[in-house]
Design a protein around this nucleic acid. Sequence first.
RNA 1: UGGGGCGUCGCCAAGCGGUAAGGCAGCGGCCUUUGGAGCCGCCAUUCGGAGGUUCGAAUCCUUCCGCCCCAGCCA
Length: 572
Amino acid sequence: MSDNDTTDARSDEREGVSRDFVRAAIEEDIRSGRFGGRVHTRFPPEPNGYLHIGHAKAICLNFGVAQEYGGLCNLRFDDTNPVKEETEYVDGIKNDIRWLGFDWADREYFASDYFEQLYAYAEQLITKGKAYVCDLSPDEVREYRGTLTEPGRNSPYRDRSVEENLDLFRRMRAGEFADGNRTLRAKIDMASPNINLRDPIMYRILHATHHRTGDAWCIYPMYDFAHGQSDSIEGITHSLCDIEYEQHRPLYDWFLDELEIYHPRQIEFAKLFLSYTVLSKRRLRILVEQGYVSGWDDPRMPTLAGLRRRGYTPEAIRAFIDEVGVAKSNSIVDVALLEYHIRQDLNQRAERRMAVLDPLKVIIDNYPEGQEEKLEAINNPEDPDQGVRTVPFSRELYIERDDFREDPPRKFYRLAPGREVRLRYGYFVTCTGVDKDPDTGEVVALHCTYDPATRGGDAPDGRKVRGTLHWVSARHAVTAEVRLYDRLFSKPDPDEAPEDGDFTDNLNPNSLQVIPAALVEPALADAKPGDTVQFERLGYFCVDPDSADKLVFNRTIALRDTWAKIQSHMDK
RNA sequence: UGGGGCGUCGCCAAGCGGUAAGGCAGCGGCCUUUGGAGCCGCCAUUCGGAGGUUCGAAUCCUUCCGCCCCAGCCA
């Protein structure tokens, strides 16, 4: 990746000051030579679902830190639970990480690659008298564990001999026992105030087919017994994880110490939450499976696949993550910050086009019938290198219905009877008449006159107009479907649900609005899926993969709308 | 009323004993052929509360309050 600009800029700004406590800790370790000055991280997703914006934080942190300190970052799939994991997800995850802009080269690993080694570690602990096979049922294990306020009791199987434990564990592996009948447990302390240390389960029996190891195993290591050792095997220096694992760290350290193997450092940071959305896999799955959205890549989803389809760029997401920072406090970041960054990015790169979502016909009465001309329009005022294009103009046009008011309110400076406005890159036009449906009274068309001297949009006499409208030539316009998206939930915290309801009660009923026949300028006729443009005065839109016989645009994000703000102030 | 973590502006977040960075949001103004963008200005006498130590505290001590996490053979 090439854009470490922001990072560099910051460290230049305040020399010697780390960006966050994680980097500060790593820098300290580099200084002290703790890991021989190495930095080696890993991003360890479980392949049981799609990555979302919350994962982007962990990805950017792990890969980012490695880049910044000249280290490496592994991609490791934490696939120790065969009943939840699928190959479909590992492909999706790899695709998303690459899209975000990170590269793990050939450093792609699976915890399942270590099953044999992990098994050997387990026997080692048994031999050392630090692990035992327990025959308690799941219910009994829970009962013996005690509660948050009461200590647990020792399992009656805790003092089996090493020989018996070894024999039983080997038979567990051999498949002699049914699921749930026995477990291998670490012998630590059933009275520990830290429940994770009350003889945690290391292995459980699971007669299930693993997406990679197939039926080779019927016992599988638990997260706590697999993660630290996997880090150790890979030579990881800094194992960065969620704050919830802070209370697992004593266990992480215990296994590594008892095994007397290379010992990485676990550092915990707070994960990211975003307002107006949910990020737990459980809830996202409900949205998908119960049809609230069209799939994991529905443009309203906070998944990387959804954001990508929505038109978010990796650069915007990285800039957002970068700005959110890394700390230890629970935080719900305002989506407005994400929205700010995508606007910021797209404003620089997206070419401008004109499109009318809710067309109102305009007839230029003094413009010769049958005449047409090509007007020059700038592709991107922010970037002259993007050049110009040509937009056809003719006697009949369409403008946005919103841009006309028969009885304009204060501060409305768009079109109204008798008023003159500019058609962007076109002419000044003045509204001279309104055609209405005799029955409904609805405005069906506007009559205007144009000033030929204002071609291109400037008046030689220097007169000014307040409003500039986007438009499209009726005869030349291309029809397209446009999908307008809004926040998926109507509450900043969707989990704040009514008494007897859940987060789905907070779904925003207007999160998707489909406009079947919007009109776009002809330059858009051969736009391809993934192309992003700004529809002038409306927002940023990208071409959806659904585009086949007709164009389909997704609105990534609307432009900031000062007029809407003015209106809401006037309503008060 | 077991343990762990966290509390600095509406939302994030710097700060690490020397007298509250920055971004987003918001509010004014300038500019403008996008009511976009850009530019300028404003926006915490105060750091969850209360005591204490100190010449000096968001930073140290005491105490209280609030929020989050842990009782999966999930990760």
